[in-house]
Design a protein around this nucleic acid. Structure first.
Lengths: 241, 241
DNA sequence: AATATATTTCAACAATTGTTGAATAACTCT
DNA sequence: AGAGTTATTCAACAATTGTTGAAATATATT
């Protein structure tokens, strides 16, 4: 409803015959390029894709890639950045909701982990066509020894630190090293999960599917939270080392 | 140790006319090519590396790549295969040792997981220069949506199934889906760990290092085994779903 | 020593790479 | 309607890509 108000305003402002069509076409072109880039980069990596392939899939001229973005690398980064913001917002909202629900009583580790992992798996379950490629891209970058460190740090670390704070409060007395390593294991399990490599399909002879995010969602937080408690809960008998 | 003796000998031989040097030179050339390929492929992926770069690093002519291996893709596969065998043997030996130790009494999940993860982390801790690149390569492939499914299946699945059998015996009554998904989480955590992306260094402001395999070894099996028990142990209160 | 085989070098190939400048079209604003 | 800006097309560039055939060299076998 509300969104229709803004449209006529636009119409008034741009007053020739096809007033809004150009700006919108340009916008959709940019988006189409990003879509194609995202999909192809996800499948074959930065160097496995040519700019011509991207623009062919987007149905646009090669030179347009350099007009809208200034280089192949910048196009790659733009594809990464586009959805990172949305992801961070969803995760933060989930965390705040959990913390709000437990104003005074203590939050369980499992609920925090769930707030960290579920938004990603949910979005993949409900909107796979739009997000699958992006998630696969993230998975690839996270495990790349050349780009993994820097890019992931830039895009996701602020939020990760926020989550670690929450876990620290849920597991008071936890040793810092154990906390960071636990997160590391979480990060690996999560990214492989939404990489959807099909490995699980092969291994289980079709019983499980890598793309079954509902199944992943039902298990991820429990599995990881148990690991966190084992490693980070000072009440556990055996300490690390 | 012994193999390092050969290096100075090679230098002598190349400049003189000793007859037996050729066959061995050919062998070391092949190995040198594989070394370079492994290192470069690990850092930049299959398409991020040119055959000329590999051969330049190996100090050999470009055409030699096509003489010893018949194409770039075959060279890539050869680099993968070379160390996969060693890895599988080490892991199987570790598992057999654990099973031998507990002839009649029951084996703990943690010991099985440890037999699966420790050999890789040990080898990386003790012989990092020789194995680091290969491990990073495996990590990249495992999380690649294009190659992950097929290649990992071909090289490692027989051994993985052997481990899953052991875990089934340790956790009787475990549901199959939970078992496979637990392994999936294990696989993700393990591969990210030996990818050594440096991400942990950034996140923890230097407190932890991604390359610290001793630290990883001290925590990995405990963390993962706790997850397995949580998800796969039918004695646990809450079942999946 | 002569021959056969295995290894290495050299030079080139057609195709493709990322990128750019100039021309053209589409659209906005006055 | 005309000037100005933004978006798109076209054609080309130098460099590099994977790959190959033929020649040269080294080693193995007789």
């Amino acid at each position: 409803m509300l969104k229709y108000i803004s449209t006529p305003v636009d119409l008034q402002v741009m007053s020739s015959y096809t007033p809004w069509s150009m700006a919108r076409d340009a916008e959709t072109t940019r988006e189409r390029i990003l879509d194609s880039a995202e999909a192809l980069f996800a499948k074959r990596g930065f160097d496995g894709v040519t700019v011509r392939q991207i623009m062919s899939k987007a149905g646009a001229d090669v030179a347009l890639a350099y007009y809208h973005f200034k280089s192949k690398r910048d196009l790659f980064n733009a594809a990464l950045l586009r959805r990172a913001k949305t992801l961070n917002e969803l995760r933060l909202a989930a965390l705040l909701e959990v913390e709000e629900r437990h104003k005074e009583d203590e939050v369980s580790v499992e609920e925090i982990i769930d707030a960290f992992t579920r938004p990603l798996l949910d979005i993949l379950e409900n909107d796979p066509d739009e997000w699958r490629d992006y998630m696969a891209l993230i998975a690839q970058i996270n495990n790349s020894s050349e780009w993994g460190g820097e890019l992931m740090t830039r895009f996701f670390d602020p939020l990760v630190k926020r989550f670690l704070d929450a876990i620290r409060r849920a597991l008071p007395g936890c040793r810092e090293e154990d906390l960071f390593w636990s997160y590391h294991f979480l990060s690996g399990a999560l990214t492989l999960t939404f990489a959807e490599t099909g490995r699980l399909d092969n291994l289980s002879d079709g019983l499980c599917r890598s793309s079954d995010m509902a199944a992943a969602n039902a298990r991820m937080a429990r599995f990881i939270a148990a690991g966190f408690r084992e490693l980070c809960d000072p009440d556990t008998k055996k300490p690390t080392k």
